[in-house]
C-alpha cells in the first residue's frame, strides 16, 4: 500500500489541517515509510483469528441512569475564545 499526493491532500482536508504543497511531498514520503513498516504485519498469518479491539480482559463497565454531572457552564465555556449568554460563539458555519 502506498499513498499519493492526492491521498495526502484528501486526508489533510478531512482533518481540517492546512498543508502546503511543499509539505505534501514530504508527507508522502513519511506516510509511505510508516505504511511499509506496518505492511510487515501482513506477513503474519491471521486466518481464523478474531479481530481484537482491546487488550483488556474485562467487559464494558456500565453506569446507572442517574444524573451525576452538569451545571458547570463556567467550566465548559472556560477555554472558549468567544462566548455570549452561555453559548459558544464560532465563525458562521451554515450550509
Amino acid at each position: 500500500m502506498s499513498v499519493t499526493k492526492d491521498d495526502v491532500r484528501k486526508v489533510a482536508r478531512l482533518s481540517r489541517i492546512a498543508v502546503s504543497e511543499q509539505h505534501v511531498e514530504e508527507l508522502v514520503g513519511e506516510l509511505n515509510g510508516i505504511l511499509s513498516w506496518i505492511d510487515q504485519l501482513n506477513e503474519v498469518d491471521i486466518d481464523g483469528v478474531e479481530p481484537m479491539t482491546s487488550v483488556v480482559e474485562t467487559t464494558l463497565p456500565m453506569r446507572e441512569d442517574i444524573v451525576t454531572d452538569g451545571d458547570i457552564q463556567d467550566q465548559v465555556l472556560a477555554n472558549a475564545p468567544r462566548t455570549e449568554d452561555g453559548f459558544f460563539v464560532v465563525p458562521k458555519a451554515v450550509e
Binding site: R63, I66, V67, T68, D69, G70, D71, I72, Q73, Q75, V76, L77, D85, G86, F87, F88
Partner: peptide
C-alpha cells in the same frame, strides 16, 4: 456521561466535560 437529558435548560448547562 452523567449529564441530564432534560429539555429546555439554559445553554451548556446539561453538559459534562465528557
Amino acid at each position: 456521561s452523567g449529564a441530564s437529558t432534560a429539555f429546555g435548560a439554559d445553554p451548556n448547562c446539561n453538559v459534562s466535560l465528557v
